[in-house]
Design a protein around this nucleic acid. Sequence first.
DNA 1: CGAACTTTTGACAAGCATCAACACGTGTGG
DNA 2: CCACACGTGTTGATGCTTGTCAAAAGTTCG
Lengths: 245, 245
Amino acid sequence: MESVLSPILRKLSRRTALTQSDRAAFLALPFTVKRLNGGSHIMREGDEPVDCCGLLSGYAYRHKIVGNGSRQIVSIHIAGDLLDLQNSLLGVADHNVQMLTAGEVALTPARAVRELAFAHPAIGRAMWIETLVDGSIFREWIANVGRRDARSRIAHLLCEFAVRLRSAGLSEGSSYELPMTQEQIADATGLTPIHVNRTLQGLRVSGLITSNRRTVTIEDWAGLAKVGDFSAAYLHPESAGGLAL
Amino acid sequence: MESVLSPILRKLSRRTALTQSDRAAFLALPFTVKRLNGGSHIMREGDEPVDCCGLLSGYAYRHKIVGNGSRQIVSIHIAGDLLDLQNSLLGVADHNVQMLTAGEVALTPARAVRELAFAHPAIGRAMWIETLVDGSIFREWIANVGRRDARSRIAHLLCEFAVRLRSAGLSEGSSYELPMTQEQIADATGLTPIHVNRTLQGLRVSGLITSNRRTVTIEDWAGLAKVGDFSAAYLHPESAGGLAL
DNA sequence: CGAACTTTTGACAAGCATCAACACGTGTGG
DNA sequence: CCACACGTGTTGATGCTTGTCAAAAGTTCG
């Protein structure tokens, strides 16, 4: 049975086994689909969300605005990601969520999601694990922004994107669509857009990547991963390790 | 009933209501207590944890080592915190956990914790929420390291500590014990120890704090919070907002 | 074709890192 | 009890990475 919720279910079941009954219950969630333009807000800091939001297509990002007015992007999301477990379970949003590109989201009452999570423990566990993986990515980003230089930070970001898109089945080969402006890359890496521009040029002249406005091609994966100090372990790919209950 | 696990239970129930039966089940967890010296490792990146670890006394911290050898501390923990839900649910540790000071930890088989979480949904929810609050703190740290200057970063760290210690009942008044060396503060804020030293001096001469080797006193809370761009919302204090199932 | 973004380039400034000592306190062993 | 080593804090001089300011060139879209 193919539903618009399938991309999300697919991601949930990537790390945890779900029974047929779990799947059916998930797909039976009430939801509405909304098409959003790039830049539209899904949630603002301080909101008290009532809906839980899953990304069906397009890209989204989370960010915080700090006192001096500058912005820090704290994560980027692709189709299949749940966007708002964090905010809707915690009651009040501590950050903003916004569409990076145009795309579609599925909205489900947060209450229904919570009930499902506890009625079907396997689903609850899967959702919990997704939030823990998000946490692992946050930790890696802290290290990225705190302890790597500009060249490494950007290389790391490009590597992370490549791996995540590929494991979500959203890219093949060594190219992918990166719908971020250099300003947004700057806000994700804690740099200025000018410096991002120069650093990207550096990566290009080193033969590690080619990129035009919206597409990145990794010309030398090993080299880029080395520059970016990248190892995919923190993304906890596939294998469920000690997850068996 | 007072148990050595009480500090942890107290923290779990701070944001979620637990029934008497939930509490009893939690306190019935099998556990062993271990006293650890400052600096001892609780978990290393790559480990496959079988035990789940709760901090009973003392301080601990999580960190990652990056390619150039430098270290990034990604969080600091105080008595009552669960240290290893992240690592033990994900199967393989993606970061290190280490004692900052001497202290005691309670070790419980991860399997027993997982079973409890799903047998007693309220406990599961409470644990999930704790991991989500950890995630919120991670996001704030990304912003801290990515978009604030040295003075703000350190002021922010000091404010966060003050609020967390106080809400855990571990400090009173405006002083608290900060058992971190300047090198560790540097690793938490993405700076060098030298710069931390100079920045702390700056905060002192501004009359915002006084500090000696192991104790920090906040002399001007409003001023320090302003410099640190600090607002406690991301710690999701107390109130359970939309948590009712 | 023009308006609004985005990317690119250049010159310059600044915050923070690096290197190198020195001072201080604490614990240890002779 | 002193000498010494060691970890930590402090200071100074210098340099580099990155930020800031300003403006031009390219791109997208109505």
